[in-house]
């Protein structure tokens, strides 16, 4: 229904006093209706939307109703021709459109981000190679606190068009260790020890089950892969803690993580001779081999 159609139902008031009274009544009714609708929206959406976005929606709705009422009812009462406003509005719209192209782009991206919700406040994310916690999501920009504590404002257009990795969107997250043991060590025993350690960790999920197996026979070690699932909120603390516990427990059980080593075979036997060295007390320390 356009304003011309509405005008047909509104009698033209020639008396300025009557016009003012009518405008006041329409404004009053509009405000009452606007308030009623916003209260209704607030009550019905307060559990479904976060507070900030709900406030934006309520304000847009409220002022939208008032704007529509001014254009649709008050202008016809005041006998203002809205068609001329449309032309002026069109020209103004083009100017504003060019001037605020990026703002509108960010605004629309912000609206789509709110609908799609790939990130939430508090999530740990990587947006355009910026890692951190989402502090705030506004209509125009998204605020990130990086892991080293920096404040970072990202325009919503960037957020929307770039790759987003949300580290806590799913409930569980897997991490992996590669643990090398000596060829002389018993890999089955090492696997059993690692499985026992995982079993004692509360946050190592039972399902999906952890995996511990010999992955490959490396140059210097037998490599055991350890894959553990943890709740997404706990995985990092667990990952930090568990590797050292595994290393210490393996060593306690006589299984060692070997250093890189290389066995050299010489074509001819080497001429070696045994010499003695002297300690601080000038006493002989026998049996030091020198090549």
């Amino acid at each position: 229904m356009n304003s011309t159609a509405i005008t047909k139902y509104i009698p033209a008031l020639s008396d300025p006093f009557l016009q003012i009274i009518t405008v006041i009544i329409i404004l009053f009714l509009t405000i009452v209706i606007g308030k009623a609708i916003t209260i209704y929206l607030q009550r019905s959406l307060k559990d479904k939307m976060d507070k900030e976005h709900l406030n934006i929606l309520l304000k847009v709705t409220y002022y939208g109703i008032i704007f529509a009422s001014v254009i649709g009812f008050i202008f016809p009462v005041l006998q203002i021709d809205t068609s001329s406003l449309l032309v002026a509005g069109g020209v103004l719209g083009i100017i504003l459109g060019f001037a605020s192209q990026s703002i509108v782009g960010n605004l629309i991206s912000g609206i789509f981000l709110m609908i799609e919700r790939p990130i939430k406040i508090g999530d740990t994310v990587n947006i355009d190679n910026n890692l951190g916690f989402v502090e705030d999501i506004n209509l125009i920009s998204t605020i990130i606190r990086t892991f080293d504590g920096l404040y970072m404002r990202l325009p919503n257009e960037t957020v929307f068009t770039t790759n987003i990795t949300n580290y806590v969107a799913n409930l569980g997250r897997r991490f992996e260790y590669v643990i090398g043991i000596r060829y002389s060590d018993d890999a089955d025993k090492a696997i059993k020890i690692i499985q026992d350690i995982i079993d004692k960790q509360p946050f190592a999920l039972v399902e999906p089950a952890p995996m511990v197996f010999v992955d490959n026979l490396g140059d210097n070690s037998v490599n055991i892969i350890v894959r553990i699932w943890a709740p997404a909120t706990e995985w990092y603390d667990m990952k930090k803690e568990l590797l050292w516990v595994i290393k210490k427990t393996l060593e306690k059980n006589g299984i060692e993580v070997p250093f890189p080593q290389r066995t050299l075979w010489f074509a001819n036997e080497l001429n070696t001779k045994k010499t003695n060295t002297y300690n601080d007390d000038n006493r002989i320390v026998p049996g030091t081999d020198r090549t």
């Binding site: 969107a169 409930l171 509360p202 999920l205 399902e207 999906p208 699932w229 709740p231």
Partner: peptide, 18 residues
């Protein structure tokens, strides 16, 4: 003993005490 597990899918399931 305290253990946790995932019941259901990764995005819509539940983390549960096991």
């Amino acid at each position: 003993k305290i253990k946790f597990t995932l019941y259901g899918s990764h995005n819509q399931g539940l983390i549960c005490r096991y």
